[in-house]
Design a protein around this nucleic acid. Structure first.
Lengths: 255, 255
DNA sequence: ACGACTTCGTGAAGGCGTTCACGAAGTTGA
DNA sequence: TCAACTTCGTGAACGCCTTCACGAAGTCGT
């Protein structure tokens, strides 16, 4: 107000969108899409909050980072907000995705409809196993790993999905980065190291279960089955390792 | 003190473990398991931190919530710490898991080796589609949805995994809760409402990609359709968002 | 036109988590 | 034994995010 307002036509935000807000934008987007499909034209922060499972204050604060797109006394325009969030998430142009490792999980992700439904196109599938090459999943043919560089160059892929065993993940990651991929979604249970400027997000399915298990343990206080106290001497982890590999192969693909 | 302290031998901490710490314990557990397999007996917070991709201060603070299990000047005993974390996560007794919805993703999760490798047993698979019933995945046979209540009762399952389409998720969730399940891992892209006392964690694969897309959009301002190719790949800090033409084409929900 | 009502946008306060810095407590070597 | 060194455990400061509370700004009914 007192400050000289930059009256430029472009939205000159610095980078006012907190990471926590970014993580919720896809949630709002999903709700708004559903509302739009049902023909709803306006929505209040309260309604949107309930549908998204958050508080209304959070919704308003989050959306305020994108600018003022609401109308006081009415709410937010569904279509307007929907476009605004889609733009903020960079979904106006569809993003191409390359998936490496068509094993158990990779195969499922390749055929997962949710990706395409929300603006992502899996343009290439890669695997090192000759048996899998040539197979078609969701209209995309599995190609040998060596074609990675050519594919990235050609199709302008910027996002890579790693579904390989943990042991191969870092090597694949390095090749992806070298080829020009700048965002990686990692499903392998291992920590990836990448140069600055490359984003990595990881999804570890077992970790989610372990977190639930933690809370379960607090609900049912470790009932001692035989009346003996928990003073086990040996390994408590019920791992049933048959042979002992040198490198810890916890998890990973099992095909 | 004011409260009668239980002198039991078991650790009876209330819940001084912050949620953020809980989320990292599985990570430490994975690293420690790997170290144990390699015959390493002690590890410093610095080494553990590097392997887990966090800072050493964070490791020490996290582990301090579990008690003093380190030795100054030396580090942490790998086996000791491994057992301690496993106990904290409730993994000393193996947790049974029930999976509902053996579709694309559910099928992959049922066969995912990572669960069993880390102390979880998928004891039942359910689906409503008659065509899928009878199929065996990883040694477990797919059963009709109606057997849910009996199975939960019998096998003492406390964790349920939902891999159904979004439209069916809430109904399945309600049945699970009614049957006695108190922790739910939800892969369906919808918000589940549950009574107090039930924990829900959600994993939305498309959301992860959308978050990556957000950061991609900031790396490459997207406006110029054919500006630079790869020559300037890397740093692009001075983001200058151009007012992009919004063509929001976000598809509807997918199965 | 205008008061009543609804809802957004936002400063302020509070809570949680991360990072820093350093004393405490152990080991190692002579 | 004792000094030098390593590393843990932790109080304190800092920053991010959430929550609260309320003014601002619009709509609606008469």
């Amino acid at each position: 107000m007192t400050e000289l307002r930059r009256a430029a036509s472009v939205v000159r935000e610095r980078s006012p969108v907190p990471e926590a807000t970014v993580a919720r934008l896809p949630l709002y987007l999903r709700v708004l899409t559903s509302l739009a499909d049902r023909g709803v034209h306006t929505v209040s922060s309260e309604t949107l909050a309930t549908a998204a499972g958050v508080t209304s204050a959070k919704v308003r604060k989050d959306l305020s980072h994108l600018g003022s797109y609401g109308t006081r006394g009415v709410g937010y325009g569904v279509d307007l907000l929907l476009n605004r969030i889609a733009a903020e998430l960079g979904l106006t142009e569809d993003r191409s995705v390359l998936l490496v490792g068509v094993g158990n999980l990779g195969h499922a992700l390749a055929g997962y409809g949710g990706f395409q439904a929300r603006g992502f196109r899996v343009v290439a599938l890669l695997d090192i196993d000759p048996c899998r090459i040539g197979e078609s999943i969701g209209g995309v043919v599995v190609r040998p790993l060596d074609e990675m560089e050519v594919l990235v160059e050609h199709s302008r892929v910027t996002i890579g999905v790693i579904c390989t065993p943990a042991t191969a993940a870092q090597a694949v990651c390095d090749r992806l980065v070298a080829a020009g991929v700048t965002s990686i979604l990692n499903f392998a249970p291992t920590v990836l190291s990448v140069p600055a400027g490359v984003d990595v997000r990881k999804v570890d399915l077992a970790v989610e279960l372990q977190i639930l298990s933690f809370h379960e343990a607090r609900k049912r206080p470790a009932s001692s089955p035989d009346g003996m106290t928990r003073a086990t001497a040996g390994r408590a982890l019920p791992r049933t390792r048959g042979g002992g590999p040198l490198v810890g192969t916890t998890g990973g693909e099992a095909s």
